[in-house]
Design a protein around this nucleic acid. Sequence first.
DNA 1: TCAACACCTAGAGTAAACTCTAGGTGTTAT
DNA 2: ATAACACCTAGAGTTTACTCTAGGTGTTGA
Lengths: 148, 148
Amino acid sequence: MSYSIGDVVKKTGLSAYTLRYYEKEGLLPFVKKNASGVRAYSDEDLRWLTMIECLKDSGLQIKEIRQYIEWFNEGDSTLPQRLSLFENRRKILEKEMARLTVVMNKILYKELLYREAVRVGNLDVATNERRFMHLKKKLFESPDDFDK
Amino acid sequence: MSYSIGDVVKKTGLSAYTLRYYEKEGLLPFVKKNASGVRAYSDEDLRWLTMIECLKDSGLQIKEIRQYIEWFNEGDSTLPQRLSLFENRRKILEKEMARLTVVMNKILYKELLYREAVRVGNLDVATNERRFMHLKKKLFESPDDFDK
DNA sequence: TCAACACCTAGAGTAAACTCTAGGTGTTAT
DNA sequence: ATAACACCTAGAGTTTACTCTAGGTGTTGA
């Protein structure tokens, strides 16, 4: 099967601008064009777009994705580079998830605090109420840096 | 206590450029300057920088952080807006963590696959080996979109 | 035939968050 | 007193990932 750019827009949710941009950046090196330059995407191209989405979601920049695609097209000699890319990504994602967990705690604390503040009409709970001070101490290294 | 911009650079790891930029963007509305324009940061300013870091880490844009700071300085009448900001952030962080978990599975699958591919010298494991096909099916809706 | 439509290219524009440059001021150590 | 140093402002430049514009081509239904 082959698809026009309009079909691919509908399938992927990407804009036609973005699809052409990706191509210009080397992310879709095998998209075919007819005599008058009109693109015809293959199922293979669509699979690449799925993979590109995944790599983007994992935080890779476009030039890193291009590098991966180049490695892929070079064949088995680049298997170690590709492994190493995924290892690094996994480590970065682990850090990112840990980071988000920390941030989530802080935001949850703030949400709780403000829920109570809205109930009573002021923010004094932050510095007066034992339960909030306790929570703050449990969650943060320098609790007083967190009353803003 | 009061701190020069150089002191604050050392304490926060932010560049002097960035500190001046934040101020220009309204994130530090109360930094004092002496007669010749030299900044003197207070402990209060440092606490704001800690809070700004947290809000940035949670994904807020600079203009949203400025909005929060303006609300804070307007006093108790803006408690509901601030609560709502933290609720929204919490929801966004929840989605983000869920998203990262999904991405992590995909990257982990790739890492595993490439570890084996490097061991045997080719990528055929992806389409031939039962255990990888099984894993793929478990992890993804459209498993065949994921062989790139 | 002619208008609508989907598509094309090259290149300009945008947004966010910095980052740097040029040219200048004030303080301090030798 | 003079050089080094830390600081200042205004404004220009950078990076990333789009997003859009202008002007043009090819196909198709009335």
